[in-house]
């Protein structure tokens, strides 16, 4: 067998026309692969791709099935809810035995839209704050030369090396305290149960990453472009927002989306900075866990809420996808 395949390859190399040989299907396949390795690479690529998609998308699929299953029959899901029966369609039952009503029920049981709104607002405001401040910082670190730049940059990055839990106690104490100057703005002068209790620490926590990304991007923009903008009549700040930021769009999108997703999905801090109620600016994860009552856990509603909750982020990523991909891979501006 070994000798046989050895002579095969020899023939394959020397002769222009392959002699008709007696080969099994596997040997024939191997011979074809040797002649045309591209096919194999392509095949491997698709295999890996499919495996990857399966592992990432299957949980979503499963979540969707859980959401569609009536709450009584959760233990019987086998790829589809056990109550699923396509023949019901003929009898005019469009749901075919599933329970899409869960997607409505989540809003009836709890003000889930309010939880989504809370997370969305907190994430949006945090992202805006982070992008503005880290743009300024990125400009300084990326484009100016001054003494002590590297130590300062390290110091900024140091913030992101701490586990967020390390900040919790002092912040919790701080936010639960009545702060006199805030009294005219906030009813009781305390930040607890306000969006600020989350926006402020999130901005600080996610800032270093954004600063790092934007510094890298802004430093790539040729000096001449900034000079040209300033000659044409902008200030330094104007040059930053009219020329440097637009040219760094992939970097800004990357920093923005990463910050948004991280804040939108945040639970730990929000949990500790707010009471459970939607009116207390509790975030989305808090809402999802709200379907877990003392005596029953409505897994189908939790699943439905998770899917609804992920939609805004999914849309955001699809919209910004092109920019993010080039931002994560390139990092450099093509002249």
């Amino acid at each position: 067998m070994a000798a046989e395949s050895h002579s095969d390859t020899e023939y394959g190399r020397t002769g222009e026309e392959e002699p008709e040989l007696d080969r099994g299907p596997i040997e024939a396949w191997a011979a074809r692969s040797i002649k045309n390795p591209g096919r194999v690479y392509k095949g491997l690529f698709y295999t890996a791709m499919i495996a990857f998609l399966l592992t990432t998308l299957f949980p979503f699929y499963w979540l969707f099935m859980v959401a569609l299953t009536p709450s009584g029959s959760l233990q019987n899901i086998i790829l589809a809810p056990s109550t699923f029966d396509p023949t019901l369609l003929a009898q005019g039952d469009l749901t075919m035995g599933t329970n899409p009503g869960a997607f409505v029920e989540i809003f009836e049981r709890l003000p889930f839209h309010r939880y989504m709104f809370n997370s969305f607002v907190i994430a949006t405001i945090t992202t805006v704050i982070v992008l503005i401040i880290s743009s300024l910082a990125g400009y300084i670190f990326g484009r100016l030369r001054f003494r002590g730049k590297s130590p300062l940059m390290l110091l900024v990055l140091l913030v992101s090396f701490f586990p967020p839990a390390a900040f919790f106690l002092p912040l919790n104490r701080l936010f639960n305290r009545n702060i006199g100057v805030l009294e005219p703005i906030l009813s009781d002068g305390s930040l607890y149960n306000t969006p600020y209790a989350m926006i402020i620490p999130f901005s600080a926590l996610f800032m270093p990453l954004s600063i790092f990304i934007l510094t890298t991007f802004y430093s790539q923009i040729p000096d001449g472009l900034e000079d040209a903008a300033r000659i044409e009549g902008t200030t330094r700040l104007g040059a930053l927002f009219r020329v440097i930021v637009p040219l760094s769009a992939p970097g800004v999108a990357t920093a923005g989306v990463l910050t948004f997703i991280a804040v939108y999905n945040e639970y730990f801090f929000s949990r500790l900075m707010t009471d459970p109620g939607a009116d207390n600016w509790a975030p989305i994860v808090r809402g999802i866990l709200g379907y877990q009552g003392q005596y029953e856990t409505l897994f189908n509603l939790m699943a439905a809420a998770s899917i609804v909750g992920v939609l805004p982020v999914a849309i955001l990523v699809v919209v910004a996808q092109e920019k993010i991909v080039s931002g994560l891979t390139a990092g450099a501006l093509k002249e």
Partner: peptide, 30 residues
């Protein structure tokens, strides 16, 4: 004074057109 308040314009040795703007936008920027 910053460049914008000096009443000058400049053609750069390395040209420095804004890559994200078309010709019209480049010329009319100021």
């Amino acid at each position: 004074l910053p460049p914008k308040d000096r009443g000058i314009s400049m053609v750069f040795q390395n040209i420095a057109l804004f890559p994200h703007m078309d010709v019209y936008e480049n010329i009319s920027f100021g």
